[in-house]
Amino acid sequence: MDLFTSIVDMISTFLGLGKYGLEVLSSYVISLAMLALLVWISARRAAKVRAELAAVEARLKDSNDG
């Protein structure tokens, strides 16, 4: 915990955040992580569903042709 506090203090001093460094940094980290997760999950599901649809359409085309 002391190491964590020292790292946060060091970053806060470097960024000029004063005594509220932990609050500001944690807000940014949490928010940006949530946004990045949302974008990643949406993109991953979009790619997965697109591939699944292509596979189903190909399968049905094959069965109709055959």
């Binding site: 004063g18 509220y20 609050e23 500001v24 807000s27 940006l32």
Partner: peptide, 9 residues
């Protein structure tokens, strides 16, 4: 203080 920077999110 610097907490005003939270406003942007």
């Amino acid at each position: 203080g610097s907490t005003v920077k939270i406003i942007y999110l």
